[in-house]
Amino acid sequence: MNNSIFTPRPTREGQGGGSSFKCDIILCGVGGQGILSIATIIGEAAMNENLYIKQAEVHGMSQRGGDVQSNLRISSDPIDSDLIARGSADVIISMEPMEALRYLPYLGKDGWIVTSSAPFVNIPNYPDIQDIQAELSRLPHVIAIDIEQIAKENQIPRSANVILLGAAQKALGLDYTTLENAIRSVFARKGEAVVEANIKALSLGKAAQ
């Protein structure tokens, strides 16, 4: 379901000096899918770029297999609100296709959805996946890929979420090497093998966008 009308947002470099940069991101999925590690990597990248960051997370009850989301805002100017206003998000990054649709009211007119295409079915009334795919393909800017499948094929089963991040790189408007460096520092503690697996995941995602 790769999208035909692909109009990438300008990267930071592309914007020329002095102009202001802002990206409001909604990260979502099902409790336990690892959306917070995507947030950590973007946060690290943004901090290295000297951008302002605000990231509201939801902890607690909802993490038990319920829907979870995090509002991540990065900007070259100071940020006031921790939450993103309706109709103003630039990107929705979702680990699950129905969850991507849940936050549509927050997406801006030209916003992007970057989502895993594989449904996570842990409720009896999960809708028909074909309906969800049809709904997604009606939207103008969508990248939907089967990250679990790609991760499995490439023997990096624990890095599916970073594949998704790679696929969102242009939509985020962040430089690829900035994200790569952020991955190196975030995963450094876990050893070189984990770092390499995630770098590979990022490049696989990038190729899929």
Binding site: V30, G31, M61, S62, Q63, R64, G65, G66, D67, A85, R86, G87, S88, M98, E99, L101, R102, L104, P105, L107, G108, K109, N122, I123, N125, Y126, P127, D131, I132, E135
Partner: peptide
Amino acid sequence: TRDEQGVSPLVVARPPQLC
């Protein structure tokens, strides 16, 4: 001025549950 999209009717609640 803000263009808001409605919630898709496909979306259903996903309550937390015991692991």
